[in-house]
Design a protein around this nucleic acid. Structure first.
Lengths: 336, 336
DNA sequence: TTACCTTATGGTATCGTTACCATACTGCTG
DNA sequence: CAGCAGTATGGTAACGATACCATAAGGTAA
């Protein structure tokens, strides 16, 4: 592979001059530029970013560390991140943690070793360890989708509590009194917040949130399936399910199908997170949608800004609103 | 940030010895290992992979260059790639080309600059330019999902022609005689092959593939929508649509909805590519599914092997079978 | 004329690792 | 006991780029 030195020799200039032309920095004459450029083309020279990064202590790489790219919410986020990053000449690495703190830690370690310029992190747990680790290695980070204790960091997320409140309120207005919560993992802020919103909506309506109607599980189909099975075995049976995310809803749907229960005739089902944009041609599930793409854009812009300025300005929290989308699965007609 | 030299000083050894411990290579005593490891922990040392890569000419990074991660097929592929790569200690960069050769070229250039160890490429067009470029820079590459002219390269793909043939045959057996093809972009092997399969199935049954029933578009919802609108405006109207991929099908579905046409009662609709695994709880669309996850696993393993061996052994082509999944949208009962 | 700024270019050191080669001790073989 | 393999460790250079400083020509302000 030709190096900058080979180009320099061929163009009859010093390597540093080639560097200037490549990076369009400093002074060089038009004639030099041309000589260098033809040399580059003739040799098929490609600069080595490892060497550059080693010297400049900057790379043009970002990372997106999330739970699972297969989740339509994160798929959309990933696309948004890559759109902004790609436009700015950055490259994006993605990592699936599957909500495992261990995997998260391993990946962050690797990413720091690779000197990524910045990280978009969906933390597996509401613990500051990961962020502290990154801070120690002065790797800029923006937390995505979830809250974290301690406020000195950038966060872009949705108002899970308000969203949950709104959609549970919808169920209540539809006349439901026994609404089961198929929750996410305890200790994950989105799960906790959605539970809170659920409880508040019930409390406001004078309904007591019976303990046995509330379950906590994982943000997976399997967990949704399990929780739904348990919930329908209660008597009296709940008349509605609130799934804390889309995967839980899919699992619940499967359980209900197996039991021969019709949605929404036998049981209403609503969920957090919309289907992937490509699939909204199947207008079935009533959901609270998060603006995944917008979140990604905001977060990435914020991260890039953070990386540019390198300033130690206060962490900033951007909370975007959710959107209630009423489709078939909630059934009925609004009562009040 | 502490470097290997700082660790060496603290442990009272030479940098090279620290390197040996980190990489578990060469000889060192148990006592040295411990001294080095405590020094590493005390300092919070993290090796610099840029420096390592510069010296060893190897990085632990892969890239997945595809058209759009938002497409459920590629989402699944991405997950599979990351699973295998992550397990092997590699990190994966992803790039969306949106079928644009220019974007593809830009990304490949950037990736070569970053010295990625290998690339999984879904080529935007059936042209060898990109692969040649990578070959020139000795970056191992495995082509995914699509064929490419010239056989000296690794390819992992599905048999699009056979899959299309099978699903069109299904429509024919259901009694359809006017089957419209909502095709993908000309010059993309999957699109071309699916058209071929369609034509052959028709020919075999003595049906002539009327030209006006065949359209070529893009692998997008918008294009599917457009093509479907045109197709239904023909008279006599086609009785079935074959969409060359999932996005086209979604767009077509939208058009049909708008026209008040019921699927499958008024018109049958089948497509290439399944829904994302999470969403198969909506059993509607009859499809030919590609084993996206398996393809990804095979391709990534092949790529890693290629990178290890560095050998110049022949390119190998792995063609996986598709699977016909009959659901509602094809309607009817099989005739013969 | 002197001083100084702008333009154009180059020399040298350095980023943090590891490749390569050298040194030296131990213990075993013949 | 020479010779050699195995173990343990270190010195030096190099990977390919850029930071930093230096040099020099030309123009212009005082």
């Amino acid at each position: 592979m030709p190096t900058i030195n080979d180009v320099a020799k061929r163009a009859g200039v010093a390597p540093i001059t080639v560097s200037r032309v490549i990076n369009n920095s400093g002074y060089f004459s038009e004639e030099t530029r041309q000589r260098v450029e033809t040399a580059i083309n003739e040799l098929g020279y490609v600069p080595n970013r490892l060497a550059r990064g080693l010297r400049t202590k900057r790379t043009n790489t970002l990372a997106l560390v999330m739970t699972d790219i297969t989740n339509p919410f994160f798929t959309t986020v990933a696309r948004g991140v890559e759109d902004v990053a790609g436009e700015a000449g950055y490259t994006v690495t993605f990592c699936n943690t599957d909500e495992s703190e261990e995997k998260e830690r391993k990946y962050l370690d690797l990413l720091v070793q690779q000197q990524v310029g910045g990280i978009l992190l969906v933390p597996a747990r509401s613990r500051p360890d990961s962020v502290n680790f990154l801070k120690k290695h002065s790797t800029p980070v923006v937390v995505l989708d979830r809250r974290l204790p301690g406020g000195e960091i950038d966060v872009v997320r949705c108002d899970s509590e308000a969203g949950a409140h709104e959609i549970v309120r919808l169920l209540i207005n539809l006349g439901h009194k026994r609404i089961a919560m198929l929750g996410g993992p305890k200790g994950v802020s989105t799960a906790d917040d959605r539970l809170l919103g659920y409880q508040q909506a019930l409390a406001e309506s004078g309904l007591n949130a019976e303990k046995e109607l509330v379950q906590a599980g994982a943000f997976t189909q399997e967990s949704g399936y399990e929780m739904a099975r348990k919930a329908i075995s209660r008597s009296p049976r709940p008349t509605a399910f609130f799934a804390a995310n889309n995967f839980i809803a899919f699992g619940a749907l499967k359980a209900l199908r197996e039991e021969g229960l019709d949605v929404p005739d036998d049981l209403a089902l609503v969920a957090f997170d919309d289907l992937p944009p490509a699939l909204v041609t199947f207008p079935f599930l009533t959901v609270v949608a998060q603006p995944a793409h917008e979140m990604a854009l905001e977060a990435t812009k914020l991260l890039l800004a953070r990386m540019e300025s390198d300033s130690d300005r206060e962490g900033q929290e951007i909370v975007l609103p959710t959107e209630l989308i009423v489709r078939q699965s909630s059934g009925g007609r609004i009562v009040s």
